[in-house]
Amino acid sequence: MRRGRDAGDAALPTHRLEVPQPQALPFAVGTFDTIGPLSRAAFPHRHTFYEILHVTSGRGVHVVDLARQELRPPHLGVVAPGQVHHWEGAAGLDGSVILFTEDFLLDHPGDRELLRRLSERPWLRLDGPARPTVARLVDDLHDEYGKGAEGFASVLRALLHILVVRAARLPAPATGPGRAEGPAAPARPGRVAEEFGRLIGRGEAALWSVRACADRIGVTPGYLAEAVKAATGRTPGRLVRDARTQEAKRLLAKTDLTVRQVALRVGFDDPSYFCRFFRRETGLSPGDFRRGAEGGRDKHHDHRIPSLARPAGRA
């Protein structure tokens, strides 16, 4: 797995995690140095994955969409897929960077909503008990990821889930130094785009189409497309396909439902068409994906990005 730039969008780079299946997890944790220069990129860009930043020292300004966050560490911040962000005047950054795709949330699909809310807030200032609590969880993620012991994937998912839930409980920053600057801090996507995200996150087969979501929200499909594209940089159709794929992966990996039953759960009456859809989106048949998910629980391998192998002297 590596983090890279997609040259297909010359106007605005899009970064993605490349995961060689099934050898690597769609997850990584490292320092700003081990993740590399893209972790503090000074040019506006988007991700196809989530990024959680635990900043323990350094200075500069982090810009997400239209919101500017001046660093006064320790901070915890979330960047969601599709958000545009970059660093300004960053120097001496230290801490941890946690990267993962939606695939990694199969055990806890509700975390997507919590991460969305966190990504729309100013970065959390870790004062009082929150400071050691977050530090311990992040250190545990480092240790578990580095060791890769038996059952490490489920432990990593559990630790990440606890981190997300506890972060979502923390109060929003008060006004004053360290508060996000600029209009509407933080800048929130339109209400239409927010409602669309909630609908496709419910996993209801009746809502696996752009028109169905537009009807539920009470807008035209064209208006929905404009709102979602402006908020996320992606089309509603692409997001619906991603949501259906993620739900199908969850059901294949975590249940004993047949392929036909999974197809029905994600809105496909024709199992053959579902199989073609799933292969187009993932590169694997539903059966191959399920066998890989089952085998991955029993195999031991080096799941880490080579550049993310933690140096012995990490604090």
Rank of each mutant, 00 (worst) to 15 (best):
P13V: 11
T14S: 11
E18M: 14
V19D: 05
P20N: 08
P22Q: 12
P22Y: 14
P22K: 13
P22D: 14
P22E: 13
P22V: 06
A24I: 08
A24C: 11
P26E: 07
P26D: 10
P26K: 04
F27W: 05
F27G: 00
A28S: 07
G30W: 11
T31A: 00
T31C: 01
F32Q: 10
F32K: 08
F32T: 10
D33G: 10
D33N: 13
T34N: 15
T34Q: 15
T34Y: 15
I35L: 10
G36T: 02
P37Y: 03
P37D: 08
L38M: 09
L38K: 01
L38W: 02
A41H: 08
F43W: 09
F43R: 07
F43A: 13
P44A: 07
P44E: 03
H45S: 06
H45C: 07
H47Y: 07
T48K: 00
T48E: 02
I52H: 00
I52L: 05
L53T: 13
H54N: 10
H54E: 08
H54T: 08
V55R: 00
T56A: 03
T56V: 11
S57H: 15
G58W: 02
V61C: 02
H62F: 15
V64G: 02
V64Y: 03
D65N: 09
A67I: 01
R68P: 03
R68F: 08
E70M: 11
L71N: 04
L71T: 02
R72V: 10
R72W: 05
R72Y: 08
R72Q: 14
P73Y: 02
P73W: 02
P74E: 06
H75A: 12
L76C: 12
